[in-house]
Structures are given as C-alpha cells and as structure tokens.
Design a protein around this nucleic acid. Structure first.
Lengths: 140, 140
DNA sequence: TCATTTATGCGACATTATTGCAATAACGAA
DNA sequence: TTCGTTATTGCAATAATGTCGCATAAATGA
C-alpha cells in the first residue's frame, strides 16, 4: 500500500470518528479494493495472521457502528458486510451469491418497492434481498 | 393430537420418502399448526424435553432434504424454516421479521421479479427477501 | 514527548450446529 | 404378529462462529 493511500484511508476513519489503527486501515483497504461484500472469514484469509480473529470481529463491529460498512446479508452462518455507498438508509440494493463457489456481488440498477407488501400496523424499516444461483464461472 | 391427524401426518412423511417417527410427526404437526416460519429454538420451546436438540436439527435437515420444508431465511443466527406450500421452486415469497419481538410472518400477494437484475452469464435459482421492521404490537 | 484514551492479542467462554456411537424404534417380509 | 434389517434417536463430544475480560501496546491530543 502506498503512503498516500494509507493516509487517505486513515483520514476516512478519523472523519468517521474512530481511530486509524494499522488493522483498521488494512481492513478498510480490503473493502475498498474488493468492491464487493466481504465476510470475516474472507478477511482473515486475505490478511493471514496479521490480525487476531477477535480483532477482525471488533473492527467489523466498529465499522458498522460508525457507518463505514453495514451488514449486507447473512450467508449460511456468515455475516457479510459491505461499503454502504450503493445503499440509502432504508433501501439496500440486492445481492447475488453463487451457491457453488460462494462468490458474492452487488446488484445495481435493480430497485424493489415493498409498498403494499405489509398488513395494517406493520412498519418496514429495511429490506434484505438475496438472489442465489450460479455465477458465470460455475455455470459449467 | 387426534389419531386421525397423526395418521395423516405420518402418511405425508412416508410419501416424501422418510420414516414417520414420533418426533418427526410432532415437528411436522407444529409446522402445519403454526402456519408461519419456525426456527429450531421455537420448536424446542414448544416441544419441551420431548426431543433432543440434535434430533430437532436432524429432523429439520431431513425435512429440508425431503422437500417437506425449506429454509425461509436467516434471522440473526437462527435459520428459519417453513412449509413450501406458498412458494414455487424459484420464486419464494418475502418474509417479515419484527426487530423488537422477533415475530415472523409470510408476506403473500407480493411478487418480485428479478428479471434483468443479473449480469450476463449469471443464473438465478432462488431469491430470499426479508423485510425488517416493527409489528403492530411493537409499534411505538 | 508524555499522559490519556482506545485498540489489540490472548485465552476463556457462549451459542448454534454437527458428528460418532450405542440403544431404540420403524418398517417390510415371512 | 413376530422377526430381522435399516433408519433414527439420545447422549456426549466436537466444530464453527462470535463475544468478553484483562493486560499490553498503540494512537491521539496537549
């Protein structure tokens, strides 16, 4: 990582009111580079032994609390996080998950309205949409 | 449970190629009575000590494999199952989950088309839609 | 640089789910 | 109905994911 990039990411963290530690910069860098949703396990795999398991969980929680990332969806037992730049507060875009290789992707340009879906007295706050299937690579 | 009902449920199980054991009949009975998605914990609560935890997990897996139920969605750490009678293979109806009391409900009469959502080469097989919010009881 | 505050690493623990194995129950055939 | 085969159950042990407390280390502001 270049020095300039690290400074930019550190600034991003401080802007959001949390300290810019080495581990946090590395994790945020991963999210920025990936451009797709990530789960704790994938982050651990990419970082090797640079960070403790507990630290990764705490970093993800800190990021989510600060609004730097948010939980996109749950895949099996894995919580998958992403940068919120493509989502407004109530209306998160859908995600795709490949049932063969586990690859995930954000689906843009695809809005869902849930107007009229709920009965009387219900209040909708968030929607989570996950489409499962096969990605181009796994499609034999 | 009346004798007739038990026989009917046993038949349902055998039709689907699995043995009709006491535990399985009780669990399927719960799903039929509930008319809403259920998680393992709720089933344990309703059955008390009649069945072992491991057995409930195995029953849910056996049911899912046999197509008697399917996993509707994941709520926090809980996998929530339901009878598939309201879903066609590819197009599962959405669900609602109350963030306050955890109550869940199926949303019917609300179809989502994901045509055009995926890029070239992707194959969509299933969609999972979860709307989170407040139910009438927990509203304010 | 120093003092204060916050984050990290480590180990222990909590929760959810799965597995191996012996005992038991279900089912089909005689 | 009874018997033998095969699948299922209960129990205990184990795995996988996530959290917590605490001492140490690092980041920030003065």
């Amino acid at each position: 990582m270049t020095e300039g990039k690290e400074k930019r990411i550190s600034g991003l963290l401080r802007e959001n009111g949390i300290r810019a530690t080495k581990g946090r910069v590395e994790v945020l860098e991963l999210f920025l580079k990936a451009g797709r949703p990530l789960a704790q396990m994938q982050i651990m795999d990419m970082l090797g032994t640079k960070l403790d398991r507990a630290s990764v969980y705490r970093i993800l929680n800190a990021f989510a609390e600060a609004g730097i990332i948010h939980m996109a969806y749950v895949d099996g037992r894995h919580r998958v996080y992403e940068l919120p730049d493509k989502c407004s507060g109530r209306n998160c875009h859908p995600h795709f998950s490949c049932r063969n290789c586990g690859m995930t992707a954000c689906l843009e340009g695809f809005k869902i309205s849930f107007k009229g879906a709920l009965g009387k007295g219900f209040v909708a706050e968030r929607q989570k949409v996950l489409i499962e299937g096969l990605c181009p690579n796994c499609r034999e």
